[in-house]
Amino acid sequence: MIIKDSLQSCYIYICIGLYLLAFLSMVMSHIFSENKTPHKKLCLSAYIIYALGFVASVISFQYRWSQVGHLPMKNLYEVFITLAMLLPVVTLISKKILNVSYEALDMFWAFLILIPPGFIGGTFSEHSAPLRPALQTWLFAPHIGAYMLSYVIMFKSAGPACKGLFVSKENCKKTQRDLYCLVSFGFPLLTLGLLLGACWGQKAWGSYWNWDPKELWSLASWLMFLVYFHVRYMNGLKYHRITSLLALLGTVLVIITLLYANLSKLFPGLHSYA
């Protein structure tokens, strides 16, 4: 763990502080709930702090963009800054359009995601090399952007998936509905990310599929959500714990695709630069 002294890191530390404060306020609002509804003032303050955290993370993203001269999604350091910026957007869409909550979890994810770029060197150092020839294509932004957005949504789906493992069959309807809405929201973006990557592979490497470790992990995560849809269709709410487990495994595979495939030296491949 190191403290970084650049301006970029200052923005990250501000975001970390605001997201953590938002999370704590939200937890407090549930602890001091009145008639099973969260404490209004604490809840409102959590939302305001979360919104401020989002503004700070947009500034951080914009600053990084101006420093490196390309969309900051090239390495894990930049990807994590982007993920933390996208989380509040997903929270808002989930709440307003899908009617799915779990805001406290989002706030915690946003806080957690910024810890590596804030305090870890090495892979998460601020150093940025110029874009390689293969990365200079219009597909760079949509491929990684679609993946980032889908990853954030799938992180969020871990909330109802975990809850679904423990609730009884009588009380599982709302949890299963939330889980299905989130997975349905993220799945097309996961598909888009995967296939835009294949299109890019065809343009840059001469093959749309190279059986590269990162490709294999991303295929496994995509297939796991496909299995989730099929099992859910076959059984409805009958085996709700199994469907929850499948969605949770999908999220675990997404995390492995994002992190382990890059950090571990077990998987050298075409995506090693990421």
Partner: peptide, 13 residues
């Protein structure tokens, strides 16, 4: 296919 993909990811492309 999921199991094969995970297993094959340790082998290299």
């Amino acid at each position: 296919l999921i199991a094969c993909s995970i297993k094959a990811s340790f082998w290299g492309a």
